[in-house]
Computed example of a mutant assay.
Amino acid sequence: MVKKLPSARERILGAANRLFQGAGIRATSLDAIAEKAGVTKRSVYYHFRSKDDLIAAYLEARDEPNLALFQSWFAQAEGDTAARVESIFRHLAQSARHPKWQGCGFLRTSVELVDRPGHPALVAGRQHKKRVEAWLAQVLQEDHGEEAAMALARQIMLLLDGAFAVVLLHRDPSYLESAGDAAARLIRATSPG
């Protein structure tokens, strides 16, 4: 069986992912992305109208895999819903212990683009965060009911994204574990019965 080589677009997105995650979006030039992808700058513009479109595509490409990873960690965990949500935080803390971990790409991009609220990458980031929140509300709904599950999912998102920020600041992944413990306690404290 012949292994299919990645297309130029896939190589560009892969290069953008590595460079944006490592150095940030503003510090990464299209020239650097083209070089890392093994294409010309003209080829980058053939696939993406602008750097802004490439930044948005980079986040859009991360959306489904990130959510699927959370869902996988949740599904593989043992225990009640609270323990399974807490396992997401534990896995993230484990990832944050890797020396090349740079935090949440969606949040890092939003910080770099804070002065451009209509930027397509911020739209992609907001959509991703809302999808994660909606999924959390869905898994919490059985035990909490729709309205309470939505409020609880929002609180868990605050714990998650707040922990991402504090871990980057202190370089201490245990903050993710503490946030996971808080999320589990919150879920259990608000469970009926």
Rank of each mutant, 00 (worst) to 15 (best):
G193T: 10
A153C: 03
D143P: 00
I187H: 11
A163Y: 06
L186F: 06
T190L: 10
L140P: 09
G193P: 14
D181Q: 15
G125K: 03
E133V: 07
A189P: 09
Q155I: 03
L160A: 02
R188G: 15
M157A: 15
G193H: 09
L169G: 08
L186K: 05
L152P: 02
L176N: 02
F164W: 09
G193E: 12
L158F: 10
R131F: 00
G125D: 02
R131P: 00
R185Y: 09
D172I: 10
P192R: 11
A189G: 15
A182C: 15
L152S: 10
Q127C: 01
P173N: 07
E147V: 07
A165L: 15
A189F: 15
L140W: 03
E147A: 13
A153W: 10
Y175C: 04
L176D: 04
G145K: 05
M150D: 01
A183R: 05
A153L: 10
R154Y: 03
Q141E: 15
L136S: 04
A151S: 14
A165E: 14
R171G: 02
Y175R: 13
V166W: 06
P192L: 09
V139S: 01
A149Q: 05
R171F: 01
E177L: 11
R131H: 10
G162Q: 03
G162M: 06
Q127E: 08
A163W: 02
E177S: 14
S174D: 14
H128C: 08
A179K: 03
H144E: 10
G125A: 11
L176H: 05
A149P: 06
F164I: 01
V132C: 04
L136H: 05
R171H: 12
L160Q: 13
V167T: 10
R188I: 09
A137Y: 04
M150K: 11
V139D: 04
Q155L: 15
A153Y: 09
K129P: 01
L186I: 02
Q138C: 06
L136Y: 03
S178R: 15
L168G: 09
P192A: 15
L176S: 04
V132I: 09
L169P: 00
A183F: 11
G145Q: 00
A149D: 05
A153E: 05
G145H: 04
A182G: 12
K130E: 09
A151P: 13
A184V: 13
Q127N: 12
A189V: 06
R171I: 00
D161A: 08
S174M: 07
A165H: 08
V139N: 01
A148I: 04
L152V: 03
R154D: 10
E177C: 05
L136P: 01
L168W: 01
L168D: 11
D181F: 05
R154L: 14
L169I: 12
A165Y: 14
F164L: 02
